[in-house]
Simulated assay, not measured.
Amino acid sequence: MRDFLTPLRNRTRAFCRDEDGSMTVEAVMILPFLLWAFLATFTYFDVYRAKNLALKANYAISDLLSRENTPIDMNYLLGIEDIYTYLTQGGDPAWVRVTVVRCTEDCTDEAVRTLDVGWSKATDGLAALTDEQVQETYADVIPLLAEGDWVTMVETMAGYEPPFSVYLTGIRPRDMRDIVLTRPRFASQLCWNTEPICDNYE
């Protein structure tokens, strides 16, 4: 039995010590992994780049809206959407929704405070928000406000299409959705030109 195993052990040791190889065979074995790693890494960085662009674009248009001291209209909002699409480098489809909110009761307690929608408008046929929707869905997003103070909530969405198939990278097409809140800088509130709440605009 020992004589039978000796040649086998010798061959195994020789194989382990052998450093000969074929570059062609090694390249064929490793090339698919290298290609996958390159494509996946490129896609992962690209999706973070797109998300960063979408958020920065929202901040940019939120800052623009915060400086308005005259009522805006749908043409203005559509222009804002064009700016957003440009800043996100063509993230399509894209939409923008602007909602003006204030706190009217129990403003020091997030759990029981009452949030009131002054007006809400959106592009691309997106529905406007109601008091109930803001109270139920966005209460955790809106910070504590002094009673009667207005805040402008800007919601944006830009579509993202990965450069390579989901089967290669695991990254699927997705919507880059962001919410940014700002206070008006030069007026008590951001106004919509046809809203009754803006009749006494200051």
Score class of each variant (00 low, 15 high):
Leu126Arg: 15
Arg9Met: 07
Asp92Pro: 07
Asn10Lys: 14
Ala27Gly: 09
Ile72Phe: 04
Arg49Thr: 07
Thr6Lys: 12
Asp92Ala: 10
Glu136Lys: 15
Glu105Ala: 15
Glu105His: 15
Asp20Glu: 14
Cys103Leu: 03
Thr130Phe: 00
Met23Ala: 12
Pro7Met: 05
Trp150His: 14
Leu64Met: 07
Ala94Gln: 07
Met29Ser: 03
Asp20Trp: 13
Leu77Lys: 03
Ile72Trp: 02
Phe164Glu: 07
Thr24Ala: 11
Phe38Asp: 06
Met74Tyr: 13
Ala122Gly: 01
Asn75Thr: 05
Asp178Thr: 14
Pro196Ala: 15
Leu181Lys: 09
Leu129Thr: 05
Glu161Met: 06
Leu5Tyr: 01
Ala158Cys: 03
Glu202Lys: 09
Val96Asn: 07
Ala50Glu: 09
Tyr48His: 08
Ala14His: 10
Asp116Glu: 13
Asp92Cys: 02
Val112Cys: 04
Ser66Ile: 09
Gly125Pro: 06
Thr6Asn: 02
Asp199Ala: 15
Ile30His: 03
Lys51Phe: 01
Asp92Phe: 07
Gly21Tyr: 08
Pro173Cys: 12
Asp140Pro: 12
Val141Gln: 13
Gly148Arg: 05
Ile83Lys: 04
Thr137Gln: 15
Gln89Met: 14
Val28Pro: 06
Arg17Ser: 10
Val100Arg: 09
Lys51Leu: 03
Leu181Gly: 04
Asp73Tyr: 06
Asp46Pro: 03
Lys51Ser: 05
Thr137Val: 14
Met153Arg: 06
Pro173Arg: 10
Asp124Tyr: 05
Thr24Lys: 07
Thr194Asp: 13
Tyr201Ser: 02
Ala27Leu: 06
Ala40Gly: 08
Trp36Pro: 12
Ile171Cys: 05
